[in-house]
Design a protein around this nucleic acid. Structure first.
Lengths: 329, 329
DNA sequence: CTACTTTGTTGGAGCGCTCCAATCCTGATC
DNA sequence: GATCAGGATTGGAGCGCTCCAACAAAGTAG
């Protein structure tokens, strides 16, 4: 299992170790003749460069650390796609980690990521306290996705949840709805702006808002519906996210109500779930790939020393109309 | 951004660099007095050990490389959970990577993982050719999850797809079904054993098998149903996986058929999708966490040099009965 | 023919750590 | 008071690489 080193390649190619290093880094100042010899020797030996030794010696690394709060939620996968595309374009790799949405574990994951001395770090929807973020931000360029933060060393990328909820309400109003309830995400990340966006839009339209406290899960969505069922049934619902919306839909159907004939439902996030034909949920889409790309770009700008001041991206979400919304009866 | 090193900690604590190293590695032969001094100094400086330098010097690493074929599929998340739990128990971290289900990218991802010289490598549902696996397997202990391979240097962890499909058929037969069709996963990984399992079970029950060629997506599932719709409608369907099953269900409903009243449907994989109350799909569950755990264990056994011969885990899946199966009319 | 570039190549120092052999204590024993 | 054992501590070498100053070789110009 012992891998060949540069020394081995150099010996085989009959050159110095330094020359092999130049070839491996694609330096232009190596004669074609030698380059070919080195490459051949490397190939014959099955040599692959030792990333650790390289970054130790160069005191730089060519990878970005990414902590994904929850691997179970495919929402992050597209953010990672964007990060990956942008990083790859600029010669960087991604090293991923997960914290399982628990502060303690996230702390460890973050420390572990830092111990590799990545060029930069992206935290996707972290739940660790701000102090931990500040500490990490002092060690490497750091970008936060789906979480805000006012530290001057930290960049952020978020969608504008206020606008998103506003789009949902506007859509429902334009269909003729006036009795629109919001099932919210409680203390979940980004739940607050989505709630304020709903409230603002309702006010703007001169309508009476009503918020049901809930969570980002399908069971919570179902529970919220069951709570209001024997009270008063609205004609439309703006859910906290897609999971919540699906839970709400099934509770409505169990109560004998049809979606969208009796009640319209709008989700949030446009997860792959929402796109399933069986679900076909009208929902608010965040430009996730773009968000990932911007996050990587922010990191790399700092890595290159091009920017000192923090950047705060607030992206405009869009509404994806599918089959769970219709005019009220 | 320049991090303090062991030298800095040593200077501050008034000891040698070697002693700091001992403390950091938790050596028992350090006096309590010095240990406390070192720890305090490290804390005051915000010192965190440099994983790269450590593994370069020790010629060992304390992390496992994991390549996830597809981050969009939450199926892998639970495998990662199992890997993580087992690795963590034994003092190892996980470093994750993704290949986006494309052979070329997976190759790069694999090379990148190897360049970090992890203690071992786990490939989750890889699509790279066997030769690439063989090459990687020569460089580090390697385990394959959801993919078989007969290389003697490589361990594998799979669920027994034959048994899984058998469970699905048995369940349907016990409900009274005799007209059971299999929509298969085409060339997808593990599609073959699921198909043979279906065929064997049908034969065992003296029933006429019928297989519709399809894929692991919901659109493919819907398409498969539309193909057989104007021909002959079975009373039950064993789908290739959950996505396929959901596509099938929506196509059936669009055609005015009710699930499970008119047609029963069984999925495969028990993804979080299947558990959604709105879907509530009867499906075959793979013990994913356990699979991840076994994969990590296999790797660590090789790391510790406890085993030379390959191990082939074939786990027994189980049936999760939900609301998409019922007796035929 | 010498001086000066330019291009290609090399040895050596050093990145932050581990590991080993050597050294230094301290206290117990004779 | 000298000897010794044992644990605690240390300097140095070295992991595989990069980077730099130095150098050799081959032009180019004066």
């Amino acid at each position: 299992m012992d891998q060949p080193t540069m020394e081995d390649v150099a010996a085989r190619a009959g050159v110095s170790r330094a020359l092999v290093s130049l070839v491996m880094r694609g330096s232009p100042k190596v004669s074609e003749h030698r380059r070919a010899a080195v490459l051949r020797a490397a190939d014959e030996l099955g040599y692959s460069p030792h990333a650790m030794a390289r970054s130790l010696a160069s005191r730089t690394s060519h990878f970005l650390g990414v902590m994904v709060s929850d691997l179970h939620n495919a929402f992050w996968a597209e953010i990672v796609d964007g990060l990956d595309a942008c990083a790859r374009d600029q010669g960087f790799e991604l090293v991923i980690n997960t914290g399982g949405r628990r502060a303690g574990r996230e702390r460890q994951a973050l420390a572990s990521l830092l111990s590799f001395r990545p060029a930069g770090i992206a935290l996707l929807g972290p739940v660790v306290p701000a102090t931990a973020i500040a500490v990490a931000g002092a060690q490497a360029p750091l970008v936060l996705v789906s979480r805000s933060c006012r530290l001057s060393t930290v960049d952020t990328v978020n969608d504008d949840g206020q606008i998103g909820s506003g789009l949902a309400v506007d859509h429902l109003v334009s269909l003729g709805h006036t009795d629109i309830v919001h099932i919210d995400g409680g203390g979940g990340s980004q739940a607050a702006p989505r709630r304020t966006g709903y409230l603002a839009a309702m006010r703007r339209h001169g309508l009476n808002p009503r918020v049901i406290r809930s969570e980002y899960t399908d069971t919570a969505g179902a529970k919220a519906i069951r709570e209001i069922l024997d009270d008063h049934i609205p004609t439309a619902i703006v859910a906290a996210n897609d999971f919540n919306a699906i839970g709400a839909i099934s509770a409505l159907e169990e109560a004998g109500l049809r979606v969208p004939a009796d009640v319209s439902v709008v989700g949030y996030d446009n997860t792959n779930l929402a796109a399933l034909r069986h679900v076909s949920l009208t929902t608010v889409d965040q430009p996730r790939t773009e968000m990932g790309r911007l996050a990587a770009e922010a990191l790399l700008q700092r890595v290159r020393g091009e920017r000192e001041h923090p950047v705060r991206h607030l992206l405009r979400p869009s509404l994806i109309v599918r089959s769970t919304t219709a005019p009220p009866r």
